[in-house]
Amino acid sequence: MNIFRLLGDLSHLLAIIILLLKIWKTRSCAGISGKSQILFAIVYTTRYLDLLTTYISAYNTVMKLVFIVASYATVYLMYVKFKATYDHNHDTFRIEFLLVPALILALLINHEFTVLEVLWTFSIYLESVAILPQLFLVSKTGEAESITSHYLFALGSYRALYLLNWVYRYFVEDHYELIAIVAGVVQTILYCDFFYLYITKVLKGKKLQLPA
């Protein structure tokens, strides 16, 4: 463990908590893409199957369980409890266009052709594009609530911090995982224009408005 990965995990946890609180407190999931939340639930489910086979540490196990439970709770809140507030008119991204290529790529490019490893690889590829429906929804509505932009900033920062973690591990531990690194770079790049808008607008108290 290193400070970059710890800050990354905490940023990730913060994002998930911000989203759950936003939906629970406002009793509304307006402005949130349910499709992205479904993709995140799939990401954690396929990535953390090793909970059944490998014990890394108490921290690792607890965080994995929190991420899985929180992602399913979010999907439940959006599609069941606060279903009436779900913006299905704007949340129209075809997630099969993300799921199928990620699965095909995982079958072609992986470290080891076993069920667990291919599913882990699939979850890495899927996570790198899982935010697209959310960014697509924000671009369609042309704006995002401040709380939603804080959620996105924390979520985008988590993988950006993981990039620093991988640099650290390469130089200090002589360890690197190319699949996760490439996917992590793609994932962070997708947030770049949002990061720019967040830093130039939201941090100055303005609402996140996308240029029409």
Partner: peptide, 10 residues
Amino acid sequence: AAPVEDHDEL
């Protein structure tokens, strides 16, 4: 290939 180490990251 080297045995795939356990993925110790979240």
